[in-house]
Nucleic acid binder design. Structure first.
Length: 204
DNA sequence: TAGGCCATCTGGTCCT
DNA sequence: AGGACCAGATGGCCTA
């Protein structure tokens, strides 16, 4: 594993520790950022954002408010309402800070769970360079190829190498084994999906 | 030093 | 309404 030294970056957490939340604590930030509606906010922001940007990322809010997401996620991804970001008006900043911190923590936990799942997947697929940790994209790609290979082997076994009745029995045994494994892992949703898939394949 | 990979923050959107 | 999900932005670490 690459020792990337992923310690918590205090500079990336501007107000999770003692330091205040500069962007949100700013009294003027309680106002809706309407400038970007005219599409000229970038010129207006570039004028002063750099000079007024303190260390610790407080200027990130202003960068975000330029509406960069409009083209990608905000506009296309969810078909949302234009991707314009506005700050909530009126809510006390301390309450918003608490909500934001809680939200950040949940997001961290969610990403940790996702990374745990990636790690489990890494350990489930064979790969050559065992001394080097697979990246996420490598993990997904190898897993896809591995599944494809196993599928090919299984189909070859059940379809070609065995007589008809025996092939079906082998397929049923495989599915049963897989289903048992999933149940042990507590993957109820996947089990249901598998059952559904199995019954569908039996019917067709 | 540039580029890849990653963790984290953040706000919008969806879902329950 | 609140949490989950998503994706953009950002900066740090590491390697070639």
């Amino acid at each position: 594993m690459k020792s990337k030294g992923k310690a918590v970056k205090s500079s990336m957490r501007p107000w999770s520790d003692a330091s205040p939340a500069p962007a949100l604590e700013d009294p003027e930030d309680t106002e809706v950022e309407e400038e970007e509606e005219a599409g000229t906010s970038s010129e207006q922001e570039e004028g002063d954002s750099e000079a007024s940007a303190p260390a610790g990322g407080s200027w990130r809010g202003s960068l975000r408010s330029k509406g960069r997401r409009n083209g990608a996620a905000g506009g296309e991804g969810r078909g949302g309402g234009g991707g314009r970001r506005r700050r909530q008006r009126g809510a006390p900043s301390t309450e918003r800070n608490v909500r934001r911190l809680e939200s950040n923590e949940r997001e961290r936990q969610r990403m940790h769970k996702l990374n745990n799942a990636f790690q489990a997947l890494r350990e489930s697929i064979p790969h050559i360079k065992t001394e080097k940790k697979l990246s996420k994209i490598e993990t997904l790609t190898l897993a896809k190829n591995y599944i494809k290979s196993l599928t090919t082997i299984i189909l070859g076994m059940t379809g070609a190498c065995l007589p008809d009745g025996q092939a079906q029995a082998e397929e049923a045994k495989l599915l049963q084994c897989y289903q048992k494994h999933l149940e042990e892992e507590g993957e109820e949703g996947l089990t249901q999906f598998l059952t559904h898939t199995h019954s569908f394949s039996q019917g067709s």
